[in-house]
Amino acid sequence: MAQKIYSRPKSLMPMPSGFCPGCLHPLATKLIADAIDELGQNNNAVHVLPVGCSALNLMYWRGDMLGAAHGRAPAAATGFKRSAPDRLVFAYQGDGDLAAIGLAEIMSAANRGENFTVFFANNSTYGMTGGQMAPTTLIGQKTSTTKYGRDAETTGFPMRMCEIISTLDAPYYVARFALNAPKGVNQAKKGIKKALQYQLEGKGFTFVELLTNCPTTWGMTPLQSLDYMETNTIPYFIPGVYKDKGEKA
């Protein structure tokens, strides 16, 4: 008798995703789906959709979904969670959505300590609109609006959202993981499960940043983009657990 080691999570549709080949968005979604399957919350989870590439989950996620205006996923999730406290609510946002237009919403929701989870997929560019500079674009990184690489003198420095949010008192769990290698993927899976578990226990706001790539707008092959992450993204956005109130107790 053959024993199953790994199979496709139940929370994903049985069809190809709408993402480009080599994109790490569907990998991040798969890890969330795995965690939700393991927690037995398939019928209880609510996916709050943002605007951007991450909203392609609309055709990929099997379960309840809620569409929010650009950057307002944490605000929509706040309303939903307060009216239905028993549901497992999570927002899945990209960096243009969360760190630029939705900065006020994420900071306010984190500061109130709302009991839901935000997954932040950071690929350091605007993917869907054609690869413009995002707040998280690295110094020297070429995008369609920074032709000669990002210059700190005119456009400032990349924003580290995990560090910023972990300075607030209310968030319960804040962590960052890189998805470019199996080690990071395994750690991310555990971190995602932990964040969702804390939410089910009613502990408060949990935030997980996932470093992803964008081979299409970075102008690379999928494998080159993994190497670029290793040498450029990870040294600036250092993976790790920034806050875990449950660990100290």
Binding site: M1, A2, Q3, K4, I5, Y6, S7, R8, P9, L12, P16, S17, F19, G22, C23, L24, H25, P26, L27, K30, P182, V185, N186, K189
Partner: peptide, 14 residues
């Protein structure tokens, strides 16, 4: 684990 599309299923013979 690394497959973004969840296209690979793994089994093991006892």
């Amino acid at each position: 684990a690394m497959c973004p599309e969840a296209a690979i299923e793994i089994t093991k013979e006892d």
